[in-house]
Design a protein around this nucleic acid. Structure first.
Lengths: 138, 138
DNA sequence: ACAAAACTTGCAACTCTGTTGCAAGTTCTT
DNA sequence: AAGAACTTGCAACAGAGTTGCAAGTTTTGT
């Protein structure tokens, strides 16, 4: 795992530092999306708030993670799958947010259905946010 | 229009006040979604920031407006269509956000396609956020 | 139409989230 | 191993959103 993390960081031309390693570790160990506050809590306040913000932004820019707009307008982040780092544009995403436990999951098994917009509209990106009850809370 | 506004407020058991009337007026005169800041600007700073927040929250609770999660994680609000006030749950929405002019529109002409989630997931609400270029900016 | 009750507003103060500049510290390169 | 390049923490700040409370407005009942 350590090795995998180093590989990801190097591959993105980022210095291997304690903060980045720890945060990446969190994402790898997690199956659902993390909010900034979750990360601060889980790192045991070992890093400065600012460092967490900057790390997340760096990861976003490099395409290591992506941000998820949730139905309650809070910001969450999730790890991109392997193919994301190959430079694709995250232009299709389905995210599921459980209204009971609050977990936010990337639903990869489902592809975003095509939407036909009125004439003249050009689509660049489609995000779907499905709210409901997850299989653990049902 | 004045009359329509009063009707909406009364129907939702809300006192008819200057602030609420003005904000509802804005929404009725607008074809795209408004952010809190837009409203403050457009009311000419006539009302306290807090009043605007509270008014928006009241309208949300009463189902007069709904909030839109945007791809950049800012909060926008839009008027619900007539049938919304009849108590339905906004469980399907397509919103289009123009990356050129920034306008956010409710796309009503398009219904949200059905998504098949993995077994065990119960769907309550589906929001789609389509980002791209609108017909005016194309 | 009026007074009392119920609700709404503005103010002040505060919390929470996110950002920026800068100096000190760490990592990388050769 | 030393210098260059990058990263971190700190302090200070900006903005978004919230809360309590007193004063003001709207509504209700008579």
């Amino acid at each position: 795992m350590e090795e995998q993390i180093q590989k990801i960081l190097k591959h993105n031309q980022l210095s291997v530092t304690g903060g980045r390693t720890k945060i990446l570790e969190l994402f790898l160990a997690q199956d659902d999306a993390l909010a900034h506050a979750d990360i601060e809590r889980k790192t045991g306040e070992k890093f400065d708030r600012v460092t967490v913000y900057r790390t997340l932004q760096t990861f976003l820019e490099k395409g290591i993670i992506h941000s998820i707009p949730t139905a309650d307008n809070s910001v969450k982040y999730a790890l991109c799958k392997d193919n994301c780092s190959e430079g694709h544009h995250h232009d299709h995403h389905v995210h599921f947010m459980c209204s009971v436990c609050g977990k936010t999951l990337c639903i990869d098994e489902v592809s975003v259905p095509v939407v036909n917009l009125p004439a003249g509209y050009k689509v660049e990106q489609i995000q779907m946010i499905v709210t409901g009850v997850c299989k653990d809370c049902a």
